[in-house]
């Protein structure tokens, strides 16, 4: 039985940084208990959200669907979402399913934070590890 994952939520000024704890495989089962909490955070008005995929080795199509839902919630509440720390194998899945066109993706948390603070260019970053 897989260990139950948790969300780690940090506040950097007005920016909310969310990452996953105790989980490396994100699938239909492991995203289920985290989905509600993620949706609550995404529904806050004008939220500035960074979702970090540090330690995540795999994300199933159920997770991709959740991400689209989160994106729509953030947009509906006039917020902004950025993703970071996505491993190349997952990034290639994003490319095939066109999620790379939906999300602004940064190599790491620092660059995502800087882009909110206006100290990095607003262009999308793609990288090789």
């Amino acid at each position: 039985m897989d260990k139950q994952g948790k969300l780690k939520i940090q506040q950097e000024g007005d920016i909310t940084l969310v990452s996953f704890l105790d989980v490396s495989l994100l699938d239909e089962t492991s995203i289920q208990p985290l989905g509600k909490q993620l949706e609550e955070i995404s529904s806050k008005e004008n939220v500035k959200l960074i979702l970090s995929f540090k330690n995540i080795e795999y994300a199933s199509s159920a997770v991709l669907g959740r991400l689209v839902k989160i994106y729509k919630l953030v947009r509906a509440n006039k917020g902004t979402i950025k993703l970071c720390n996505i491993k190349n194998n997952i990034l290639s899945v994003f490319k095939v399913t066109k999620l790379d066109k939906m999300f602004e993706i940064h190599p790491d948390e620092d660059k995502a934070l800087k882009s909110f603070k206006g100290t990095a260019s607003g262009f999308k970053f793609f990288w090789q590890k």
Partner: peptide, 15 residues
């Protein structure tokens, strides 16, 4: 289709 929450699994299978 681009913001649909479903159907990405099929794209992955076909890819």
């Amino acid at each position: 289709y681009w913001d649909s929450e479903h159907g990405r699994g099929i794209m992955l299978l076909q890819d």
